[in-house]
């Protein structure tokens, strides 16, 4: 990224609407994500959080009757006008709620994306795989068995493998969609530490329905409810005793949701 990227937000979403068939689940959401921040999106299930992420890298296209409208800009480029959608997807690392170890070796799991984009050099691949596994705090546990199956790792390890894979195409943005729902608290805390470190190098969009996770990690938090933004502001403000909306107060204090 060149220096000009500081002049506009890394992600700019304006009046985003998402429909599945005739059912609209996101009703006109706008927000910006700045470079090198952790941006949390909180809200109860079915409020449209995951749909927003799918619009960023256009994987919404894989859902048969899904339609998006409004504008989504990544690095100042409208994603709808991106010609090379694979480039766009490599710009964004995406971590799904459930860990997905591909049925390949640990090494191949991480090397899959670089290979798919044409990297064949053995030494470069080795270095890249090691760096990504280190960044995801998994290297020490698997460095002696890189050739064993990724699917045989434990749930928590697989989720870190998924993060390593998401980092393997050297994205500038890392999106995590409720990464902790299927893993234990200890691993969750380890990954949270990882995210804090990664913040120096990239931008993190964290979708979560654990409000305390957002409180621990995020610089800014957006509270989404029923496909609409209820409140967007610095995390401190959202979690203060007087957020702008009573609904925000009720949600983050566990009164509903």
């Amino acid at each position: 990224m060149d220096d000009e990227s500081h002049t506009y937000p890394l992600i700019r979403v304006q009046d985003l609407k998402v429909r599945y068939g005739h059912r609209e689940v996101v009703h006109g959401i706008s927000f910006d994500v700045q470079k090198n921040e952790i941006f949390a999106i909180i809200g109860p299930a079915q409020s449209g959080k995951s749909s927003i992420l799918k619009c960023l890298n256009r994987t919404l296209e894989f859902i048969a009757d899904a339609k998006m409208s409004g504008s989504v800009e990544v690095n100042g480029v409208d994603v709808k006008k991106v010609h090379n959608v694979y480039e766009l997807r490599r710009e964004i690392g995406m971590v799904a709620p459930l860990p997905v170890g591909l049925p390949l070796s640990i090494f191949d799991n991480v090397a899959f994306a670089p290979r798919a984009s044409g990297l064949r050099d053995k030494h470069e691949l080795d270095a890249l795989v090691q760096r990504c596994l280190e960044q995801a705090a998994l290297w020490d546990e698997v460095k002696d068995r890189l050739n064993s199956l990724g699917t045989k790792l434990s749930g928590g390890q697989q989720q870190r493998l998924t993060i390593a894979r998401a980092l393997s195409h050297q994205p500038s943005i890392l999106c995590l969609d409720e990464f902790s729902i299927a893993i234990d608290p200890v691993t969750t805390m380890r990954i949270e530490d990882v995210l804090k470190e990664l913040k120096a190098e990239l931008t993190v969009v964290l979708v979560t329905n654990l409000v305390q996770q957002a409180r621990r990690l995020a610089d800014r938090t957006m509270f989404v409810w029923n496909g609409e933004v209820v409140e967007l502001g610095p995390t401190d403000a959202i979690f203060s005793e007087q957020p702008q909306s009573q609904k925000t107060y009720d949600y983050v204090h566990g009164i509903f949701g």
């Binding site: 890298n57 994987t59 894989f62 694979y86 480039e87 766009l88 997807r89 490599r90 690392g93 995406m94 799904a96 459930l98 997905v100 591909l102 049925p103 390949l104 899959f112 994306a113 798919a116 984009s117 998924t162 894979r165 998401a166 393997s168 195409h169």
Partner: peptide, 25 residues
């Protein structure tokens, strides 16, 4: 389907996904 989604998310094309993951399995 989660295998396919994981591949698409890292910027693999449909054919790369089919050849690398779907067909071998």
């Amino acid at each position: 389907i989660s295998f396919r989604e994981a591949c698409w998310n890292v910027g693999a094309s449909r054919w790369q996904t089919i050849r690398g993951i779907v067909l071998p399995n």
